[in-house]
Nucleic acid binder design. Structure first.
Lengths: 213, 213, 213, 213
DNA sequence: AATGAATGAGAGTTCATTCAT
DNA sequence: GATGAATGAACTCTCATTCAT
């Protein structure tokens, strides 16, 4: 990889002991995110992470139990960011397929602003499976609420709760694969999602899920 | 992991030199497949593979250039098997959504019979990206032909070719994630896909894609 | 080979971190020199070197990039030692053939005190060619200065500058081959150079180079 | 290295058993010479040699005990060639310094016609020390006879027999180092020896050895 | 809390040699 | 005599983790 440039050495001067520790923790976590985004989990060595964070290798172990520990915290950290972003992006009055479309677009917005998220999310199934499971649990739970409300509003018909869960997995999977195919360039970078892909998604989901039975 | 048990030591007695070599090659390839299925690409060491195949480590390098080399051959090898299986499973007279349902079921049949295929396929994006790209190319091309014929038969309406490609990615992605959620047990094993998941898939795809515009 | 005996375990107690690191570096370098002296570059494995230095194999790579790296540093390290030794041995008032004789004797003195130097120097052409080239450049440059001054003093006549360079190579080559034949015992050890060899060298060089034209 | 091109598959058709064996032996020996000339002893693997000779790896061991065995035979094989060449090149009526000059030129002639000889000779001290010793014994013995005759003719004065041996080593060493500096290009190739180097050698040796005491 | 040298297990790979065919 | 697949010891190098400073 092209060597990443270290983060700013320390933030401001005069930080309390506590602030400094918190700052170091965050620096390590964000360095890890950048390294994983650039090189993938497999090549995210402790030495790369600490070099990027500007601390000694031993310091790492004052903040994380093991290398795996920091890898496990990456997806929760960025996943929450992503959910916050999507939440903020959804206008309150949107309903039905339009709401789903907005969610879909917001996801790709976030991806474009945080290219590292692609690898962190998609490699997590392999390298941080617990974090991946938990991330999915949160996502699916959120979706269940959202689709449940759509069912109540009569926008979705003909799907049992069990079936809706399966549909949620299909929606989430679509994001991943469309990102893989249309957005990810194979080396850490991303581009905007082509309009016809959005059209296809919206059409497919509208007919498949929201269309009047 | 629980140590895998070695393959039968040699096959029959009396094999010609050529047969023996072919046998060793196949034993190594299938050992690699089992190890990757069990432990993932990252932990598929040459030593594990040769131990399982019952040959010396050096023998490995008579058949593969590098460790990566064998990893790259896994997905083509099993991917072809899978496509053959699906091809054989499709009754000729099936059309429309029923044909897609048969394809879907056949995929999960194959997965249940070859549990290692799950990891080989889903980790390939990371560990054997070239093989992964090629595998997808074949899959997508096949699907394009199939959906193209459905369009000609008037079973699918309202999707441009570009949009259909995006839809194909959604169909393929659905398989993956539904496998991940409902079939894969997290440690190399698989179970049958619950009926309601099949129902949900069929319903969603029928409405989304095949329903009369 | 007869296993070499490890260096003293640590030096003194109470060394600062920096001192300890410097000590480890030196121990590794000198262990490498002894191993090469004993077994040659080809058989100087990292494992032998670290065993002799009394450190773990991994430690080696905290100080040298690769095995080749340490091999490349051996000749510069000992070559400088040798030149210092020769420089210190030359009385200021010596001139002409006597000065060359002193240089010649000083070289063999050094060789006897550092038997490893023989292999380090003579195998370097093959195993550390860059270091060898550089070493020769330094040697030849030094000689050019020395012979140039002899020419100015009128002690050498009848040789062009180009020819003198060729003569320098002959002088350096004589050292090597005489060491090979009369000093080196074939297994890392050395003995004193017989007097008649010194006589022959002095006679040959005096007549060949310094004799009045 | 640039892959060497294999020797002609077999010579003529219809060779007796004995001839075929002798042919294979020679093919292996000459392949070894080419490989060593190109890549050096250290990288002359049995596999490279047999590939170049166009035989299977196992065949090698029908002709040579070990890899070292063939390496040990290289210098005797080419050394004899070289001596024959020099012998043929020396006009019978040459004497004194002129005879030595002719010998010197003939050596470099041979070197230019057989570039592989450079590495075979100069690496032999390290990789085939016994062969190297033997080669030198032959060379020195020959030289002793030649210089002894020069002494008898009164062309050389003032050197004892012991001293003459040392001088012989100096003459042989000069060839090597002058070849290293002026003829060898660092990657298997050679060029002609510059005239001023020949001049310097002749001048040095004439004055040093042959000049009237 | 921060450091960074030291550790050592384990990885991938090479290759001279053997031997059944 | 020729073959070439099989062997296994030995190699260089990596890196998560520890711990004395």
């Amino acid at each position: 990889m092209s060597e990443l440039t270290p983060l700013r050495p320390v933030k401001q001067r005069r930080m309390s002991r506590d602030e400094k520790a918190r700052d170091t923790y965050k620096r390590l976590l964000e360095s890890a995110a950048r390294v994983v985004g650039e090189d993938g989990y497999a090549d995210a060595s402790v030495s790369k992470i600490t070099r990027l964070a500007g601390v000694a290798q031993g310091t790492f172990y004052n903040y994380f139990e093991t290398r795996q520990d920091v890898l496990d915290r990456l997806l929760p950290y960025m996943g929450r960011q992503m959910l916050d972003h999507i939440g903020r992006s959804l206008a309150h009055d949107l309903t039905g397929a339009e709401r789903e479309e907005a969610r879909f677009r917001a996801f790709f917005d976030y991806l474009n602003e945080h290219p590292a998220f692609y690898r962190i999310l998609y490699e997590a199934e392999i390298f941080a499976p617990d974090a991946h499971d938990e991330h999915f649990r949160i996502l699916v739970d959120g979706y269940k609420g959202a689709l449940g409300r759509a069912v109540e509003r009569g926008e979705i018909k003909g799907y049992s709760d069990q079936e809706l869960e399966a549909v949620i997995y299909m929606l989430l999977s679509a994001r991943s694969y469309l990102a893989m195919r249309y957005v990810h360039d194979g080396k850490g970078g991303t581009g905007p999602l082509p309009g016809h892909v959005i059209d296809a998604y919206v059409k497919f989901v509208t007919r498949g899920l929201f269309a009047a039975g």
